[in-house]
Structures are given as structure tokens and as C-alpha cells.
């Protein structure tokens, strides 16, 4: 389907069709509320209680504070990982032997859950922000490294030959051929890695720090079984994670329009 056809199709969705997902969500919320009112003496709250809990967080100024704390850690962890992993990955991926050397090692480190690094993180950085950022760094580093290595490997040979043909210097080649050619794949890989970072930050905050959305969840439960805050926290995590993903996707679209070389 061409872009124009896709656009036309989405515009032709009638209002009732667009309302259906909303109706579905409303139906789920109603079911949730009914289930909770049938069992009033169990721990989990209904949707209205959760909404009130979000209001409470807003009022106490905690909502903004925790969201910012989590985003802060994610940004730093991701940025550090990107700054190290991408140039390293591009360089290693360029040399066939480099790839042969590093790839097996990375494949062993990658399945080690970032959380397994917690003892080492606390050993090196103590409890606090740095440890959390380190965990996010670890969670992002290996996927980004692999993405960069694979992006370089997937540059069509034609592009490289053209660069050589035109007698470009190395610096020119990197700037004018390599970099634009790898950007689309790097953006896609970054979106996926950002998703991983968001999962890790929540876990890291439960264990290693005293602020942030992950901390909110664990603290709300430990200090008084405030499950309304727990679920409120979960919903906020979901929303921000979704916004991050959508933001990265729009970046992808810009990237692919500018640097598109696909046949579609």
C-alpha cells in the first residue's frame, strides 16, 4: 500500500468505528468497578479509587516529581549507553574480524538481566541515582551495540562503492554516506531500547533508590497497602511508556522520509 492509499484509508474511518475502542475501554472499566464492589473487603481498588489516588499524587506534587525522576534516570542511562555503544558498534561492525571477535562476547552479556547487575552496581556506586542510571546503562548498552553493528552490516554495498568511486576521504565518507545510511535502523533500534530502558528503570527504582515511579509502587504497598497508589503508579508508567514509544515512532517517520531508500 502506498502512503497515499494508507492515508486515504484512515481518513475514511467513520466516527462510529473510531469510537469502538473507547467503548471497549469503558466496558472494561465498568467490569472492573463491578468486580471490586462485589468483593469490598479485598485489597485491590476500583477505577474511581485509582483516579482519586492520581489526584492525590498531583496534589502532593509527587506525581511530577516521580515522573521527572524516572525520566531523568532513563535519559541519562540511555544517553550514556548511546554515546558509547553506537560509535563503538559502528566501528566494530565495519570490520568483519571485529564483529567476529565481539559478537560472541556480547551474546553472553546480553541475556544477563540488568537487575542481575544490582549487587555490582551497589558495590560500585552505592545506593542511589548513580546505581539506577548504571543499571539502565547496562540494559541499553548491549542492544544498542548490536543495533549499530547490524546497521553497518546492512548498508547496501552500492552505497559504499559509490563513496569509493567518488574518491571521498574517510571523514567525508562517514559523514555523507555511512551516517545517513545507518540512521533509520538506529532510530528503530533506539525505540526498542528505550522501551527496555523504561522497563528497567521501574525495576531499578524498586530496589536501589528512594524516588521515582518504581519506588512509588513498592513504597505504596510496603507503607500501608495503598493499592490505589500502586495501580495509579502502574497506569502512569503505562502512559509515559506509551508516550515515549509514540514519540520515537514519529521520529522514525521523519527519519525514514528524509533518508528513505526502501523500495516501497
Amino acid at each position: 500500500m502506498t502512503a497515499i492509499e494508507r492515508e486515504n484509508r484512515s481518513r475514511s474511518l467513520s466516527l462510529s468505528t473510531r469510537l469502538r475502542p473507547i467503548a471497549f475501554v469503558v466496558a472494561l472499566l465498568v467490569l472492573w468497578q463491578i468486580a471490586v464492589s462485589r468483593h469490598p473487603d479485598q485489597l485491590l481498588p476500583g477505577p474511581w479509587a485509582v483516579v482519586k489516588a492520581i489526584g492525590e499524587l498531583l496534589q502532593r506534587g509527587l506525581l511530577l516529581k516521580y515522573v521527572v525522576a524516572s525520566l531523568f534516570r532513563v535519559t541519562w542511562g540511555f544517553a550514556l549507553a548511546a554515546v558509547l555503544a553506537i560509535p563503538l558498534g559502528l566501528t566494530i561492525g565495519w570490520y568483519r574480524r571485529g564483529e567476529m571477535a565481539i559478537y560472541p562476547l556480547v551474546q553472553i552479556f546480553r541475556p544477563i538481566s540488568p537487575l542481575a547487575w544490582i549487587p555490582l552496581a551497589i558495590l560500585w556506586f552505592g545506593v542511589g541515582d548513580l546505581a539506577a542510571i548504571f543499571l539502565i546503562f547496562v540494559g541499553c548498552f548491549f542492544p544498542l551495540l548490536l543495533t549499530a553493528m547490524s546497521a553497518v552490516r546492512n548498508i547496501p554495498a552500492v552505497y559504499i562503492n559509490v563513496g569509493r568511486n567518488f574518491g571521498m576521504s574517510t571523514a567525508q565518507f562517514v559523514y555523507r554516506v555511512l551516517y545517513p545510511a545507518v540512521i533509520p535502523q538506529l532510530i528503530v533500534g533506539s525505540r526498542i531500547t528505550m522501551g527496555i530502558a523504561w522497563l528497567v528503570v521501574v525495576a531499578a527504582e524498586m530496589i536501589a533508590v528512594n524516588s521515582g515511579l518504581g519506588f512509588l509502587i513498592i513504597d505504596a504497598r510496603n507503607a500501608g497497602n495503598r493499592y490505589d497508589l500502586v495501580i495509579a503508579g502502574m497506569l502512569i508508567i503505562g502512559t509515559i511508556g506509551l508516550l515515549l514509544d509514540l514519540g520515537m515512532r514519529s521520529l522514525e517517520r521523519v527519519g525514514s522520509l528524509r533518508w528513505s531508500y526502501s523500495e516501497e
Partner: peptide
């Protein structure tokens, strides 16, 4: 609904 639930870290589900 699925897209909304997906970014919620499984770890965040622990209390529930």
C-alpha cells in the same frame, strides 16, 4: 488497551 498495558514493566505488577 494492549498498547497501553505493554509498556508497564512486569516488575511493576509484583504487588498486584
Amino acid at each position: 488497551v494492549l498498547q497501553f498495558l505493554r509498556p508497564i514493566s512486569p516488575i511493576a505488577w509484583i504487588p498486584v
